[in-house]
């Protein structure tokens, strides 16, 4: 395996996600206006801008601590349902990342050395899939939604499954992330005909059908951004950060 997910790539991913959310703010809000309360884009943008404002300071630490801090920032700035849900996603990912030894598969018997960014070889695909799995499980535990309820879970669960399958098949990180983004996109599009069973859209009953879920859409943006930014070749950590959206 020649690719890993480095600490620098994770910070680049967060920057790119903030840029994508800012770019799609109006679009997400319009999707939300159709079946919710017209604030998803605005709320996510406020949260990711807060993350962006703290990112330079946060990026000094380990990947686990960075992801946890991102989670807490989102919890305290986004509000609504998206705050606790996206916050929990990153908090749980950070929790698992903190337990992982970069570059070593779990149970390898090596001492659990905490990563310092300059020394970090990055997380393997299997480790990254484990982070995403834990994050998505956290979202489901907090929101009690399952696939088919017309929520962000409809994009997240297939993406996590695709990552897991790709890791089991020994695919390269870039291929795995691309498949996860595709799976999230299919899950997002599959929300269009669904009748919502969770969140404010559920009050509409049958009238919620025919609209794409805004939460599934922002979750797809998260996965698509990951495919665009998360891959770095193994080797010494690069000093230059990939430009957002590049």
């Amino acid at each position: 395996m020649s690719e890993t997910v480095s600490h620098e790539a994770v910070t680049a991913w967060l920057r790119a996600f903030a840029a994508t959310i800012a770019e799609h703010r109006q679009y997400l809000t319009e999707l939300d206006a159709a079946i919710g309360d017209a604030d998803h884009g605005v709320n996510m943008d406020r949260g990711m801008q807060a993350v962006l404002g703290r990112l330079d300071a946060l990026a000094e630490g380990a990947t686990g601590a960075l992801l946890k801090a991102v989670g807490m920032t989102l919890v305290s700035t986004v509000g609504g349902a998206a705050g606790p849900l996206y916050g929990t996603l990153f908090l749980q990912m950070g929790k698992v990342a903190g337990e992982e030894s970069p570059g070593k598969e779990a149970g390898g018997g090596s001492p659990q050395t905490r990563d310092t960014p300059e020394a970090a070889p990055g997380l393997t695909l299997r480790q990254w899939a484990g982070l995403v799995d834990a994050g998505v499980a956290g979202v489901q535990a907090r929101g009690k939604a399952v696939v088919g309820d017309k929520t962000m879970v409809d994009a997240l669960v297939p993406a996590a499954a695709a990552l897991r399958a790709a890791a089991a098949a020994g695919l390269a990180v870039s291929e795995a992330l691309s498949q996860a983004a595709d799976a999230a996109e299919r899950g997002m599009k599959a929300t269009i005909p669904l009748v919502a069973r969770k969140g404010r859209a559920s009050y509409l009953g049958e009238r919620s059908a025919g609209h794409q879920d805004p939460g599934a859409t922002s979750a797809w943006l998260l996965m698509r951004t990951a495919a665009e930014t998360l891959v770095t070749s193994e080797g010494p950590a690069s000093e230059t950060r990939p430009h957002p959206g590049a």
């Binding site: 919890v75 305290s76 986004v78 509000g79 609504g80």
Partner: peptide, 11 residues
């Protein structure tokens, strides 16, 4: 008080 029509946050 949260943002307009948006739940306040745990903090």
């Amino acid at each position: 008080p949260g943002e307009v029509f948006t739940s306040p946050t745990p903090d």
